[in-house]
């Protein structure tokens, strides 16, 4: 993946298991966001094709509809909380009754029950982040791409979001790819970890293995918080 003259991602080969929480960690600017955007077809690689389950990606919308990307800074529609969360169901032509049921489930999961009628732009930062989370999971995506979902949140909201992530995986068996540079968070919720430094995926392993015995001294430095960047 190249922007101008800058190669932001280099030949990345990564397998993610169904139903796992995979943490993609790396310093700021290492290419985490770019990688998630690539998976969601917002960027195009200059070499090769994007395939999904072996399918060519000509029908992008059909593949996108099986996943969901929660942006680092979510954009909020100038509408009510309910309408924001309902959006993904609406564009899929789901009937009204089901929409109401699923939206209230999703709002319940993120702890925003009862706020459906509030204007979404008036939510607090933490509430807005949780609303965006509800919006991303309301249609049961198979794959959930989370881009630093807890950056800029207070500890209470960080805990809430982490609980939600674990709950979603448990209840819905959603595959979750979490980009973060929050190492304690990785310790708390990830199954496996990939370390991305300067666009290069230098190591992939289970959480326990990678923390106990990093296979690369750059990984070790980053995980210990010793990396200067």
């Amino acid at each position: 993946m190249v922007f101008g003259e800058k190669e932001v991602l280099k030949d990345i080969n990564l397998q993610i298991m169904r139903g796992e929480i995979f943490a993609l960690v790396g310093p700021s600017g290492s290419g985490k966001t770019t990688f998630l955007r690539l998976l969601n077809f917002f960027e195009r690689p200059e070499k090769g094709n994007l395939e999904f389950n072996g399918m060519e990606t000509s029908g992008i919308i059909n593949i996108r509809r099986r996943m969901s990307l929660l942006f680092q800074t979510p954009a909020i529609f100038n509408k009510s909380v309910f309408e924001n969360v309902a959006y993904g169901l609406k564009v899929r032509g789901i009937d009204k009754k089901t929409i109401e049921k699923k939206v209230s489930e999703a709002l319940d999961i993120v702890g925003l029950s009862g706020l459906g009628n509030q204007k979404a732009r008036t939510l607090s930062g933490g509430e807005a982040q949780r609303m965006a989370f509800a919006r991303a999971i309301v249609y049961d995506p198979e794959i959930l791409l989370l881009d630093e979902p807890t950056a800029n949140l207070d500890p209470a909201n960080v805990m809430k979001i982490e609980e939600i992530i674990k709950r979603i995986r448990k209840e819905r068996e959603t595959t979750i790819l979490l980009a973060t540079h929050n190492i304690p968070q990785v310790r708390r919720i990830a199954d496996r970890v990939g370390i991305l430094i300067n666009g290069e995926l230098i190591e992939v392993n289970t959480k326990n293995a990678i923390f106990k015995n990093p296979g690369d001294n750059r990984s070790e430095a980053f995980l210990k918080g010793e990396m200067i960047y």
């Binding site: 917002f42 969901s68 979510p74 954009a75 529609f77 993904g88 991303a136």
Partner: peptide, 26 residues
């Protein structure tokens, strides 16, 4: 209308038509 609004439409499974409607609404 921020580009992020349009990208949100797409990531939530919206079509080009949905994106135009969302821009109109915003």
């Amino acid at each position: 209308v921020p580009k992020s609004i349009i990208e949100t439409v797409y990531t939530l499974g919206g079509s080009r038509k949905d994106a135009i409607i969302a821009a109109l609404s915003e």
